[in-house]
Amino acid sequence: MADVKYYDVIQKPVITEKSMEAMGDKKYTFLVHTDATKTQIKEAVEKMFAGTKVKSVNTMNLDGKKKRRGTAVGKTAKTKKAIVQLTAESADIEIFEGL
């Protein structure tokens, strides 16, 4: 496994209707490094966003999609998505405010 630092774990937030609706329950969705574990994701969220306390982390591995360009067939890169549940007394994540 690669040596993944906490600042490399979270790549970008996922902004969809379903993820925005889940933010009411303090659930935030991120694309994360494919080698990151649940404990590394929890540590990264708590270090990067001050005042947050993670209750649980759910992850899912997504395979790449098949794409065609003429006769050539290829696949896009695999991704990993994490849904982070914060505790009730935890502070909200500021990057999602005002969306």
Rank of each mutant, 00 (worst) to 15 (best):
M60A: 07
E94D: 07
T76M: 05
R68M: 03
K65V: 10
D63C: 06
K78N: 11
K78S: 09
N58W: 01
Q85E: 13
A72H: 07
G74F: 04
E94L: 07
V84T: 01
R68L: 02
S90L: 07
S90Q: 05
M60R: 09
K66F: 06
T79N: 13
D92A: 03
T76P: 03
K80Q: 12
N58F: 02
E94N: 05
K78F: 04
R68Q: 04
L86Y: 09
T76S: 12
A72Y: 06
T59V: 13
K65P: 01
K65S: 04
D63W: 08
A88L: 05
Q85W: 13
T71W: 03
E94F: 05
L86A: 14
N58L: 08
K78T: 03
K80A: 15
A88F: 00
G70T: 01
R68V: 00
L62Q: 11
E94A: 14
A82K: 13
L62T: 08
E89M: 10
K75E: 15
K80I: 11
K67P: 00
K80N: 13
I83Y: 02
K75L: 13
A82R: 13
R68G: 00
A88Y: 01
V73C: 05
V73N: 03
G70I: 02
G74I: 06
D92N: 02
M60H: 06
K66R: 06
T59R: 11
I93W: 08
R69K: 14
N61R: 09
I93R: 07
T76E: 10
D63F: 10
T87N: 11
A77Q: 02
D63Y: 11
G64Q: 11
K78Y: 03
G64R: 15
I83R: 04
T59I: 10
M60T: 09
E89N: 15
A91K: 13
I93K: 07
D92C: 00
S90C: 05
G70W: 02
L62F: 08
A88P: 04
K81F: 08
N61A: 14
D92R: 04
G64L: 15
K65M: 05
K65T: 07
T76L: 08
A91I: 02
E89V: 08
N58Y: 02
K81V: 15
L62R: 12
R68C: 00
V73S: 10
A82L: 13
I93Q: 06
R68T: 00
G64T: 14
R68W: 01
T87L: 09
D63E: 10
A82Y: 12
L86F: 14
A77K: 05
K65E: 05
T71V: 10
K66T: 15
I83H: 02
N58M: 07
V84K: 00
A91R: 08
L62W: 05
A88E: 12
K78C: 03
V84S: 00
K75S: 12
D63A: 14
N61Q: 10
V84E: 00
I83W: 00
K75N: 13
K65F: 00
G74P: 04
K75V: 13
Q85D: 14
A91G: 09
A77P: 00
D63V: 11
D92S: 03
